[in-house]
């Protein structure tokens, strides 16, 4: 019982961390900052999934975390590969 409350509290805490990270997406100022925040969501999301797996007694959620961890870097890779060369973030420094 105590443990269940603790785990849900921890999950809630991590979700709040994730939401706080959204501020960086809005502020930028460069696209690299935003991508970095997305990477942070990945790591935090894996943590939340692992905690919820324990709290809800659903072992399958660890597989979800596994898939997230495996593919977390992909969006960043696509980002770096698709950049229109350097200077793509010009004109939005005030973001």
């Amino acid at each position: 019982m105590v443990m269940s409350v603790f785990l849900y509290g921890l999950a809630l805490f991590l979700i709040l961390n994730l939401i706080a990270g959204l501020v960086r997406v809005l502020r930028g100022p460069t696209d690299a900052d935003r991508m970095l925040a997305a990477q942070l969501f990945g790591t935090t999301g894996v943590g939340i999934l692992l905690v919820l797996a324990e709290a809800q007694g659903l072992a399958a959620l660890r597989d979800v975390a596994l898939v997230f961890a495996l593919l977390a870097a992909l969006a960043t890779v696509a980002f770096v590969r698709a950049r229109r060369g350097p200077g793509s973030s010009e004109g939005e420094a005030g973001g």
Partner: peptide
């Protein structure tokens, strides 16, 4: 671009919602 990164974040949150709704 900002909108797309937010969309990715939304996808992550949605999968937490699926977890909460017992849909692994």
């Amino acid at each position: 671009f900002r909108s797309m990164v937010l969309f990715i974040a939304m996808g992550l949150m949605l999968s937490l919602a699926w977890v909460r709704l017992a849909a692994p």
